[in-house]
């Protein structure tokens, strides 16, 4: 079903770039020319053959920092997305299939959580919680799971009222067959595409928190944190802060292109013929 030649060019670009980011993150210690915290030169050296992206506010090699930053950024974003997705999808599906008070209670709670902007709620909670990776992942994952919950519940409710699900119920099938064989295969594609969007959101949310000084703490730095470290250079015309910022944008666009393609494939499959 998947023929490389039939993947549209934007999606192909997205896939390749995303893969590059992932490779950089996984093999960071072997790829990076210098250590993460190693001071190798002057403050804010321009780009040169020795330091392809120049050096940062403490004289560390920016390229090496970027590669290690990819690692932290992707690590946290992946875990937070995984948490938000499993939590949101499981609860959303259960709410749709079981209904009743379980559904009402969860749905009202999610409405309540979503009536506060995520960033604001995140800031409120982070003002009292210790700043460490676990807290960060938990806060990001739980706050974002509300959106996954809404989507997966809506998708499952839509499928649950289809005639083919009714036919399966009339046949006497148990809820196992109905959830895993009738609903899940049809809910998968919109959810996979949503997975991409949630991941982008996690990357952006993490970067924003770190940029505000509430995310990853020094000496470690994700890309958002690196923007914060180097932002004072901007007024002197030093573009070092723009590089990690651009990397975030590029990663987000790549994943977006892939997610867009998955979504289009889904809708065209649904249309079918006749």
């Amino acid at each position: 079903m998947l023929d490389i030649k039939r993947i549209p060019i934007p999606a192909l670009i997205g896939i390749v770039l995303t893969a590059l980011f992932v490779l950089a993150a996984v093999f960071a210690p072997w790829i990076a020319p210098h250590g993460n915290g190693e001071i190798v030169g002057d403050v804010w050296e321009p780009m040169s053959a020795a330091h392809l992206l120049g050096t940062d506010n403490l004289g560390r090699d920016l390229l090496s920092r970027m590669i290690y930053g990819a690692r932290i950024t992707l690590f946290i974003a992946v875990l937070a997305t995984a948490l938000s997705f499993s939590l949101g999808a499981i609860l959303g599906f259960s709410a749709a299939v079981f209904g009743g008070w379980f559904d009402t209670l969860l749905s009202r709670l999610v409405d309540l959580l979503m009536s506060i902007p995520t960033l604001i709620m995140g800031l409120v909670v982070l003002s009292v919680l210790p700043t460490n990776l676990v807290t960060l992942i938990l806060v990001m994952g739980i706050l974002d799971s509300t959106r996954v919950y809404r989507l997966s519940r809506a998708v499952a409710v839509d499928i649950n009222v289809m005639d083919y699900v009714e036919a399966a119920k009339l046949r006497g099938e148990g809820s196992g067959w109905i959830i895993f064989r009738e609903i899940l295969p049809n809910a998968l594609s919109p959810l996979v595409s949503e997975l991409g969007l949630r991941f982008i959101y996690a990357v952006l949310f993490l970067s924003t928190l770190s940029f505000l000084g509430l995310g990853v703490q020094p000496p470690d730095a994700d890309w958002g944190g690196m923007v914060k470290e180097n932002k004072d250079g901007i007024v002197f015309g030093i573009a070092a802060a723009l590089i990690p910022a651009a990397a975030i944008a590029l990663l987000a666009i790549s994943v977006n292109l892939v997610a867009d393609w998955v979504l289009n494939r889904t809708t065209s499959l649904k249309g079918g013929r006749g």
């Binding site: 289809m162 005639d163 083919y164 036919a167 009339l170 046949r171 006497g172 064989r181 009738e182 295969p185 049809n186 499959l269 649904k270 079918g272 006749g274």
Partner: peptide, 18 residues
């Protein structure tokens, strides 16, 4: 359940597309 079967108006939504 076996003895009572049903056929629907809209055949295309009465079958799992997958």
């Amino acid at each position: 359940l076996r003895q009572l079967q049903m056929i629907y108006q809209m055949a295309d939504v009465a079958m799992n597309p997958r």
